[in-house]
Design a protein around this nucleic acid. Sequence first.
RNA 1: CGGGGCGUAGCGCAGUCUGGUAGCGCGCACGGUUCGGGACCGUGAAGUCGGAGGUUCAAAUCCUCUCGCCCCGACCA
Length: 504
Amino acid sequence: MAKKEVNAISPTRAENYPEWYQQVIRAADLAEQSPVRGCMVIKPWGYAMWENVQRVLDAKFKATGHKNAYFPIFIPKSFLEKEAEHVEGFAKECAVVTHHRLEAGPDGKLVPAGELEEPLIVRPTSETIIGAMFSKWVQSYRDLPLLINQWANVVRWELRTRMFLRTTEFLWQEGHTVHATPEEAIAEARKMLDVYAEFAETYMAMPVIKGEKSPAERFPGAVSTWTIEAMMQDGKALQAGTSHNLGQNFAKSSEIKYLDAQGVLQFAWTTSWGVSTRLIGGLVMTHSDDDGLIVPPRLAPAHIVILPVTAKAEDPEAVLAYCRKLRDELCALRYHERNLEVELDERDLRGGEKAWSWIKKGVPIRLEIGPRDMAQNAVFMARRDTKDKESMARDAFISAAPGILDAMQKGMFERAKAFRQSRTREIDSEAELYAYFGTNQDEAAPSQAGFALTHWSGDPEIEAKLKAELGVTLRCIPLEASAPGTCPFTGKPSKQRVIWARAY
RNA sequence: CGGGGCGUAGCGCAGUCUGGUAGCGCGCACGGUUCGGGACCGUGAAGUCGGAGGUUCAAAUCCUCUCGCCCCGACCA
């Protein structure tokens, strides 16, 4: 008798998307709220995914010539003040350290003491402190390019936080490079954007659109900012990574200068680029369903979980031995740049409960193995993405496993891309744009809108108007340019279409 | 920081209007029956009712102030 279809996550995506997102994170045991305002605790299953992000990206950074280094978490206030636009962009969201000691007050409670002569800012980003060091490291054109990356935590005192997407403290990497010419700096920034895009699509199975930010959306202090934009399942955009050409702005404020081959002192050209733990949020919102997370195999903390079914077995130990041997053989298999990672779940839980816990965690493949499978030298396999289940000969599964995972990876990417396609529309009139985005921004249930591609003549007033009236921002000017046309808002000529969307 | 909602056992909630001994479901522990997709019966442990003041014989409940969380907005990765 078929059981009633029940979803593991309540509410569903359609019922209340923001709440669903929170519930998926909880159900998959990725992270939880901490006692500290706006700060989360990343739990092992979530952190393992971040470690996989780190592992893959770190290798890519090194392959493109970058070296890792580490700079202080504290930035003297005066450093942040050096670049005017930069200060303006970050001043409102800085954690400031003003004291270095605690003393017992009259009521026995600890009060800050030992006021600092100059307050220290907990880094919201490290351009200024790294620039100060780079000014010492760069003397000659022979020192260039200087290609540095740092894995770090940063703090931005945002007014509103969401798990992974925007937390007060978050983990990220920030690349900082110095070049002799503007062309090299631009090429570097674009190269790293390509690295991000390739990572997002190949590893996260998250399709992204590469593009340039409008001046209004640029990083504070940058000459140009490029972005990869992804679409979440509620049709909202997520800025998943950015790369900045900083021109000479920071070189000038930090005095990064070099003697060129002609012996002339020149200001250098710098870039910075970063992705953060926000990627995990993007991964959740790109792939999860109403039963919980679905992890793309290339980033999965575990590719396969083996669930021994021993309750009715005459010889449970034999089933366990069969499972352990299977695990060992699978773990010896190569899957891209690492071996297969296999969990053997021997917890003393009921079968259904145990299976559901892994469904919610999104492990790509589940193997349920009991006496019957063992007797037939088989495995019972369930795929998380398609929910397909089948019994397979043991050895056939072992040789097929990497291929099945690759098929999942590809299927997840294609599914996400098809979704994005279904929610992307070319729009040529203001009225149609307003109809498309509607006005029901307060509903918990996601709207049916997504990306709107319109022409745009470059007027910031139009951006401001659409933001105010529709809550829509210009996500990017795609690098893959479309044909020229006419701006539907101003009637002026437009070089290409741009992407509008509501965003996280 | 503005608007709205909410803080009661690990989680989800009722109780608050109308003050009178702290409740329910799930989870957890133990025992038993079960077991290939979320089992059932029994027993049990678990709470400074977010915090601080106040009113009162008596406060989860009324008043004041605070802290935090969620949603929307503004800001932003």
